[in-house]
Design a protein around this nucleic acid. Structure first.
Length: 380
DNA sequence: AAGGACAGCAACCGCCCAACC
DNA sequence: CGGTTGGGCGGTTGCTGTCCT
């Protein structure tokens, strides 16, 4: 059968997706939904085949994707499912919410397969390898166990090693609900300047979105955990400069067509460098008729994750954190040296849609930093 | 410091299948 | 009923970053 007809057309781009392409696709799908993929490129203004768009959406842009490393539970589940299902990655992926078949397939081929072999298990049959080497025994198993534990311990103790993408453990840092009034004043969370230990974390809880005309609204707050991951010493060095850094929470009005001024929607900059993207989903808990407050709950609440009201979504590019950090913190260079893994972002490529020039890290105000429909609020 | 080897992963390719005409 | 089209899936490739010598 060969190539799809949609791919036969000339002048179709191939290879890595640029942030601009991602944004176009993201805007299109969020606005019109997933329909006929073959028509998506034309409607979205992309020089890609529909298949490529579909793949990009499913494997990367979809807002419900879980990112970051596989947990031990996920790993075990994949192995178990593979034993039953074989290489039916799509079926395996169906059992792991937020994971794509491609991701699982890659994980299997790059890690799990080798791990099983090391443990003396045939990854194809999940039975002990019939090897002439009878020493795939306790020593090897212990070694493997050690490797796994070391990795996990590192993740827990030392956040300086970032995965290529992060699944934010948001629920651990966010209050269950945050109250704001309609002007964006902050009512909830905590921002105790006298207790700098958790200044970033506490302050980053500030987020706000007004609800317009009883329609769905979206917001994102990528920062409370991003800071914990990006600048872990923040919590260890309460007197450093970091607490003066204000975090920016981008807020936009979904119904107002506000995606147009979103920052880059990709975590893959053009150089293919590592960067971090997170997707956040808003749950508007209360009816907008309740004028006393707008209450938002953590989108990661399991009960709410199944709630249809969470449909609108956002994603946030951590480059913004870095840009802001550079802008705001005089000790950037110093920190930069300590976080080389974090510095590969092509910030120039993706910072065009948001400007920090007017940003005052020492005040607590909100201002419209970008075009219409894109509001930025910040805190500390 | 340089370069080769390796690992990880995004994206493409080719095939299958179902829906539609 | 056969041809066409489009979506889905698994295998594979190739790029990039990291590690190792």
């Amino acid at each position: 059968m060969g190539r799809h007809s949609c791919c036969v057309k000339q002048k179709l781009r191939k290879g890595l997706w640029s942030p601009e392409e991602d944004e176009k696709l993201f805007n299109h799908i969020t606005r019109f939904g997933v329909g006929c993929w073959s028509s998506v490129p034309k409607l979205a203004g992309l020089q890609r085949c529909g298949k490529s768009c579909r793949l990009r959406w499913i494997n990367y842009l979809r807002p419900d994707l879980k990112r970051g490393m596989f947990s031990q539970q996920e790993e075990d589940l994949i192995i178990s499912l593979h034993e039953i299902l074989g290489n039916r990655w799509a079926q395996i992926a169906a059992q792991l919410p937020g994971r794509t078949d491609n991701e699982i397939k890659n994980f299997w081929n790059s890690c799990l397969k080798k791990k099983l072999v090391k443990q003396g298990i045939d990854p194809a049959t999940h039975k002990p390898l019939l090897s002439t080497d009878h020493h795939h025994d306790d020593n090897k198993k212990q070694e493997d166990t050690k490797i796994i534990m070391t990795t996990e311990n590192n993740n827990e103790k030392n956040n300086t090693t970032l995965p290529s993408s992060i699944h934010l453990p948001f629920s651990t840092n966010l209050p269950s609900s945050i109250l704001f009034n309609h002007s964006g004043s902050y009512y909830g969370g905590g921002d105790d300047d006298n207790n700098n230990d958790n200044a970033i974390i506490e302050a980053s809880r500030e987020m706000f979105m007004t609800n317009n005309n009883n329609k769905a609204t979206t917001f994102l707050d990528p920062l409370s955990s991003l800071y914990a991951d990006y600048f872990p010493q923040q919590q260890q060095q309460p007197n450093n400069n970091y607490h003066q850094l204000s975090a920016v929470t981008a807020v936009t009005n979904y119904c107002g067509g506000g995606f147009c001024s979103m920052p880059s929607l990709t975590n893959s900059d053009q150089g293919g460098h590592v960067s971090v993207t997170d997707h956040h989903q808003l749950v508007k808990e209360s009816s907008s008729n309740n004028s006393s407050s707008n209450m938002y709950t953590s989108p990661w609440d399991d009960n709410i994750m199944s709630n249809k009201m969470m449909e609108p979504f956002f994603q946030f590019n951590a480059i913004k954190c870095e840009d802001l950090y550079k802008t705001s913190c005089s000790s950037w260079e110093e920190d930069n040296n300590n976080h080389q893994e974090h510095t590969h972002h092509n910030t120039a490529a993706s910072s065009s849609s948001i400007h920090f020039s007017n940003y005052n890290p020492l005040t607590s105000l909100s201002e419209d930093l970008t075009a219409a429909n894109f509001d930025v609020f910040h805190h500390i």
